[in-house]
Nucleic acid binder design. Structure first.
Lengths: 222, 222
DNA sequence: ACCGAATCTCAGAGCAACCTCAGAGAGCGG
DNA sequence: CCGCTCTCTGAGGTTGCTCTGAGATTCGGT
């Protein structure tokens, strides 16, 4: 089995639907483990390492929403997609209180489910990142710089993107050309990088981003 | 009458069955109000505060399923148990689709009904209706925002649903797309989210919901 | 110390994202 | 039937972000 494959835990009691989903996901080269009740879902959800959980709302022995709640209360942060037969606003909202990230109403379109799952995984990979800034941290999901002893600093989209590239490998020097290419794709003025470095310094202080004259910029004090 | 007692609204047109159920529930120290048609059920369901509703499926003036649907569409989240003479799968599904939590087929065993009712109440109590908003609280059941030093603020169904999603994971940013999909399923204009954020801010002040430009919205100041 | 080049600083135009709000339509209650 | 609230739409108005360009400042080499 593909070692790089995304690992998905499927909790679905309806055997036919389960089988269908397993086939669907396997074809898309996911690595799927199907279980058929909440108890098994809880066990595998807690012990295994998964990239996503797909959970039916109506299960024997334990409601899907309860399962989600229990997993969350045990500190599991893996993205969860709920499947449901019901589709009222109240129901859609209720899943969220427990901590599910997405909600698909049966009967669903296969392509839609796959698209949602991809979005879920991408979003999680994109946003679960806390980038270390040496003492402070960049939270990409909320675009904020968090400090242990100060208020969070909010960044704009471009400021965040720039800082993210510079902070990806601490100590490494990034050239203006590289930064311009990766962050300011459609900017004509090469000065844009300078300007945004200026903005970041104004918000975060001058110790964070250092200039290496003639080369570019790098992170940190050392 | 016991102030701590669980308040149950019973909507049942058959006088003999109604009386039987009232006696049964009263003995178990529930606080029961019997009404005998859908109109009265709707009125009391909307205006009173109940821990559970027990509704017969066949009623004069309004079908039980319709009553459930109407109550749900008005944002009532109180758990509902349906009573029915029919027992086909189709009937069951229809009742659940309307938003009922449980379904008991007549003639039923008294102990079974009581057990089901207890389970219903316990399950509902687990899913706490209070959501923390950082200083204030959202009571989902009554759709009110409660403040320690101010009058409660009443929210409409959609306002409440939106706030609930945003407040589900504090600090997390919810995209417009996500909010639109979950709360405004039947809306064509993506602007609906903006509008309801505007309404909420007008009612709750501008500090509660923050915009993260280009991403979405999130809760609270920190 | 001087000069050119690299870099910093900052005001402002342009624009997309966002906010605001009036109003139409649906549904309910009187 | 009328008035009410709730919901959603669409049309501006406004805000904040992005990028530009031009002057000020710093740096390294001589």
């Amino acid at each position: 089995m593909d070692l790089d494959a995304r690992r998905v835990l499927l909790v679905e009691d309806d055997r036919r639907l389960s089988e269908l989903l397993v086939r669907l996901l396997t074809v898309e080269s996911y690595d799927v483990l199907p279980v058929f009740d909440g108890q098994a879902g809880l066990h595998h959800g807690l012990t295994g390492r998964w990239d996503a959980l797909v959970i039916d709302r109506t299960l024997p022995a334990m409601e899907g929403v309860d399962l989600v709640r229990r997993l969350r209360s045990r500190g599991i942060t893996t993205p969860i997609m709920l499947l449901t037969a019901r589709g009222t606003t109240e129901d859609r909202v209720e899943g969220l209180d427990a901590g599910a990230e997405d909600y698909v109403v049966k009967p669903f379109d296969s392509d839609e489910l796959l698209a949602r799952l991809r979005a879920l995984l991408r979003r999680h990979a994109d946003t679960s990142t806390m980038i270390d800034l040496g003492g402070r941290r960049l939270d990409v999901a909320t675009r904020r710089v968090l400090s242990p002893d100060a208020e969070p600093v909010e960044l704009s989209a471009q400021e965040c993107a720039l800082l993210r590239v510079i902070a990806a490998n601490p100590g490494r020097v990034r050239t203006r050309e590289e930064l311009h290419r990766r962050v300011f794709q459609n900017a004509d003025s090469p000065n844009a990088v300078d300007t945004y470095v200026y903005y970041l310094r104004r918000k975060l202080g001058h110790g964070m981003i250092r200039t290496v004259r003639g080369l570019g910029y790098r992170l940190g004090p050392s």
